[in-house]
């Protein structure tokens, strides 16, 4: 089966600033594909290029086998978009938002009206169907935006940081909705900087920074490739003796503020050491994507 999206050497420059510096990837059908990266990595610009909202400086892009930008309309007809910041239409109620958005796809009014109840049920918004959109909570707006993105029964849904700014309850609801979409076979393209989100949802992901793709793989592959399997974070106490002990055991150490991160293969002797010193507060956990992410993109702040 041909890939849903095939990007080859995508570049976006703004004057002297390079936002996307030549990225290539393809997204298989039915896959949940994640783009991970810190702020300013070029994630949103890449998404906008796939939609044809940002003209590319160089590179080539085909979606559903159609060429961007020549077939922009036909491509967008089959995509649903959940943007980073909500842009629901405040002039309309909840159900009207779906109907009006459908009209932009050329879907006739009767068909659109028939689809609304199912979409509202999917988004748990049935009892809010006549509410004004500005009375909705942040989580409800996100769910409505997701419902809106499905109005054209898309083959690909693109979500730009879909859970940023939501509380844990709302975030879990969104995740369950996205998992349901994936189960139906819809291809998902998701940008995020929440590692838990990427680990839960994504079959494959790329890590981006400064406009480049640093690596690609499944979450497990990336963890195996870039970090040791276990992590001990020592968060309080005098770590000087432990540091020497850990180094002796071949651990890789990173200091971040008060915390010492110790990455290694076998933590048993280290844990034995830590248990003897009651002043040391620590956390022992398996390595995750966050460790990969920090390893690849560094610990400096991105503003």
């Amino acid at each position: 089966m041909p890939p849903i999206v095939r990007a080859d050497g995508l570049v976006k420059r703004y004057g002297g600033f390079t936002a996307v510096a030549g990225v290539s990837f393809d997204i298989p059908a039915g896959c949940c594909f994640g783009v991970l990266g810190p702020n300013g990595a070029g994630k949103t610009t890449t998404l906008r290029m796939i939609l044809g909202m940002t003209p590319m400086t160089a590179g080539s892009l085909s979606v559903f086998g159609l060429g961007m930008p020549a077939d922009g309309r036909a491509i967008r007809r089959r995509i649903g978009v959940v943007p980073q910041a909500d842009n629901l239409d405040p002039d309309f109620r909840v159900d009207e938002n779906l109907e009006v958005h459908a009209s932009y796809f050329g879907i006739d009014a009767a068909t659109a009206r028939a689809r609304v109840p199912e979409l509202l049920a999917f988004a748990n918004l049935t009892d809010r169907r006549h509410a004004k959109t500005d009375t909705l909570s942040g989580g409800m707006k996100r769910r409505l935006t997701i419902a809106r993105a499905l109005i054209n029964a898309p083959d690909l849904v693109m979500l730009d940081e879909p859970t940023t700014g939501l509380d844990p309850q709302a975030r879990h609801v969104i995740w369950s909705r996205l998992a349901a979409l994936k189960a139906r076979g819809t291809t998902l393209l998701l940008t995020t900087h929440y590692m838990e989100e990427a680990e839960r949802l994504c079959d494959e992901l790329v890590i981006m920074d400064q406009g480049r793709i640093l690596d690609r793989g499944t979450p497990r592959e990336l963890i195996r490739r870039h970090v040791e399997p276990e992590v001990i974070e020592v968060r309080a106490g005098d770590t000087a003796r432990f540091r020497a002990f850990a180094e002796h055991h071949g651990c890789r150490l990173e200091q971040q503020g008060m915390s010492l991160y110790c990455y290694g293969q076998d933590s048993a002797p280290l844990l034995g050491f830590l248990q003897q010193d009651a002043d040391l507060v620590y956390l022992h956990r398996p390595a995750g994507l966050e460790d990969v992410f920090l390893r690849l993109t560094g610990r400096e702040l991105r503003d």
């Binding site: 939609l51 909202m53 922009g72 309309r73 036909a74 967008r76 007809r77 995509i79 978009v81 943007p83 910041a85 842009n87 629901l88 239409d89 405040p90 002039d91 958005h101 932009y104 796809f105 050329g106 054209n152």
Partner: peptide
Amino acid sequence: VQRTYEAMLATPLT
């Protein structure tokens, strides 16, 4: 202000 155009541009509209 409402970024209605942004929502429209993500559909087949140009």
